[in-house]
């Protein structure tokens, strides 16, 4: 935090608090609140839709294409929900993409597939989730109890998990042979693909967890002020472990979704997904320094990026230009957020 912000405004009980001041305050309050921030994202998304409709016409604006956008968003979306929690608590997880790759490899090992064929396809699900949770547990323990900076610990996991995935897969592609698993992952419910349903369920559960539970309150408190949370009696270290386990779990879920979409496990799955996830979270309005997190914002952030990709693909535009556009969106979104935040009461000096 900058030196300027550490000075506290000292409102006085007898300060002239005119009617107009109160009104602008409530407007500012709204704009600064999560609703206001999400409104900006909704406007951005709407603008993208206008662009998409203008360039693609009916090709863009039809149910099938909307589902394509959502399906595109679903895997990154699930990862982003886990990352939102970690970032809200003031941490970072760079490893979700490669952990996701590792889960696809382990879940499609010949031995696992054989055992699944003999018992149930759910075994693959359990294995993928267990691998994700285990990786998250290692991250969490190293960070919370080993006092290693999260950036470094998860960077090590990013490299290590990718290497492990290459080693056990022999860099080959492992095709999913289990019909039941594939038919479940590729099924529709109410005309909507299961991948999208998984994203919806994870997002809703994530919203509830962050905003309505003690788990979420601890997450925000730790991100807002770790030392104050510790001194208030919150078991900070234990909670940090839970958070990285949660991120690992979402990596496992995303891995399963990836298997469903591509019908194969490989060590290259999820390459650079961690950066897309972090970008979506930050564009969504979650503070990188922690203390404020928004699941709605993250979902909108993911949708903005997937809509952008869709528009570029439909118009056969260069993916390099798309990358530039993505970069611009990230910077502009963060600049706008800072503008809003700077208008808050903390700027008042006495």
């Amino acid at each position: 935090m900058s030196e300027q912000n550490t000075k506290v405004a000292e409102p006085r009980a007898d300060a002239p608090d005119g009617h107009s001041a109160t009104q602008t305050n409530s407007l500012q309050h709204f704009l600064k609140g999560s609703a206001g921030r999400s409104l900006g994202l909704v406007i951005a998304l709407a603008l993208l839709f206008v662009v998409g409709a203008a360039t693609g016409g009916d090709r863009f604006l039809n149910v099938e294409n909307m589902l394509t956008i959502l399906r595109l968003a679903s895997i990154i979306g699930v990862l982003s929900i886990g990352v939102t929690f970690v970032i809200t608590a003031g941490g970072i997880d760079l490893s979700v993409g490669s952990v996701m790759g590792l889960t696809t490899v382990v879940a499609t090992l010949a031995s696992v597939q054989l055992a699944a064929a003999q018992s149930s396809w759910l075994l693959m699900v359990v294995v993928a989730l267990a691998v994700g949770i285990a990786a998250g547990l290692i991250n969490g323990l190293v960070i919370a109890y080993g006092n290693v900076v999260a950036f470094i610990a998860t960077l090590a996991m990013l490299v290590g998990a990718r290497g492990l995935a290459e080693l056990i897969s022999g860099r080959s592609t492992q095709v999913v042979s289990n019909r039941q698993f594939l038919s479940f992952m590729r099924s529709d419910v109410l005309g909507i693909p299961i991948l999208i349903w998984i994203f919806i369920i994870v997002a809703v559960a994530g919203w509830f967890l962050l905003n309505r539970t003690t788990f979420g309150r601890r997450t925000i408190a730790i991100g807002g002020n770790l030392e104050a949370s510790r001194l208030a009696g919150i078991k900070v270290k234990r909670h940090l472990v839970y958070l990285y386990v949660l991120a690992g779990l979402t990596a496992g879920i995303a891995g399963l979704m990836m298997l469903g979409r591509t019908t194969a496990g490989t060590s290259t799955h999820g390459l650079l997904y961690e950066l897309d996830a972090i970008a979506a979270v930050v564009v969504g309005g979650t503070l990188l320094i922690g203390g404020r997190g928004t699941i709605v914002g993250t979902v909108l952030g993911v949708l903005i990026f997937s809509t952008l990709t869709n528009i570029f693909t439909q118009n056969n535009l260069d993916t390099s230009v798309q990358a530039i556009a993505k970069g611009l969106i990230i910077v502009v979104a963060v600049l706008l957020q800072q503008r809003f935040a700077a208008r808050g009461p903390r700027k008042l000096k006495t």
Binding site: V8, A221, A228
Partner: peptide, 18 residues
């Protein structure tokens, strides 16, 4: 400020932090 409060959180959440 650095050990007691979560400065950007509302007063009541600071009161009930424990």
């Amino acid at each position: 400020k650095s050990q007691g409060l979560i400065l950007d959180e509302p007063v009541f959440k600071n009161v009930t932090l424990s």
